[in-house]
Design a protein around this nucleic acid. Sequence first.
DNA 1: ATGGCTAAGTTGGAACTACCAACTCAGAGG
DNA 2: CCTCTGAGTTGGTAGTTCCAACTTAGCCAT
Lengths: 151, 151
Amino acid sequence: MASAKLLDSSCPVARSLGVLGERWTLLILREAISGTTRFAGFRDALGVAPDVLTDRLATLVEYGVLTREPYQEPGSRQRFDYHLTEAGRELHITLAALWQWGDKHLPMSGVPKVERHARETGRPLHVAFVDDRGREVGLDSVRSTWVQPAT
Amino acid sequence: MASAKLLDSSCPVARSLGVLGERWTLLILREAISGTTRFAGFRDALGVAPDVLTDRLATLVEYGVLTREPYQEPGSRQRFDYHLTEAGRELHITLAALWQWGDKHLPMSGVPKVERHARETGRPLHVAFVDDRGREVGLDSVRSTWVQPAT
DNA sequence: ATGGCTAAGTTGGAACTACCAACTCAGAGG
DNA sequence: CCTCTGAGTTGGTAGTTCCAACTTAGCCAT
């Protein structure tokens, strides 16, 4: 599980995909961000096979995206649930980027939609490049450069 | 190819992953964004098996992420190269989101890095949620709501 | 104390997908 | 005509995923 080949790559996109790029993983995280915490919750929401779900949850725990925590409801035995870490919460940006791309380029009519708004101002949100002053910058203004590590 | 099950999902993240979620696809697009246009370029940069590469390029062309264009260098026969469409260029945001997550949470020392800067101002860039005025909004301020489609 | 119920898995086999090496095909140059 | 190169195709093997059935642990009712 969690492709060692990709994790050893010098490219951070490849390393991210080494943890996140297997089938179901990003959908599991979408569910986690929308509030699902339990094995059966993921299985029922996604229809993922239980052996695959076990594998993916273990990988996400191993790489610090989820925590596996025991809990006990009164009158019931101890069970486990899965909560996002800070690293996992940061994937909201990645998932929202996929969400807005699919919404625009693979549209589907007649289905309920999710919208994102700023909690304080109510303004609609999207995902974009931003400079260090917090100002949005258009795609055409993005310039990528290579930087050698300090020796 | 390009999971029909996911493409029929009501969730745009699942639909995006129906096109982009197969192994190698996002890495091929990372290469495309960094300027690679030819079959051999992708194969040599990534080490992907040629049958898989053929399949992924065809899927990306089918869904409007790449175009397959004939070209002819003087003194050489006609060949094909693959260029990003506008939809493909927009995936720069998604890939940069994966890039910054991997850079932060799966760091690797001693390797060259890519940095992104605004072309006009030179300011460093990252990917984040932004409101409709172009102002960055922190993760904790994002509120998601369901909207029923107009009937 | 036995049997049912549920959450959270495990196990076994069939089906699908990826990997690797070798091969094809079309035109250009010698 | 022979070779070279880019852009693939093909065939067999190895690795993954899918699906259904089974397991395990503790609580509760009878």
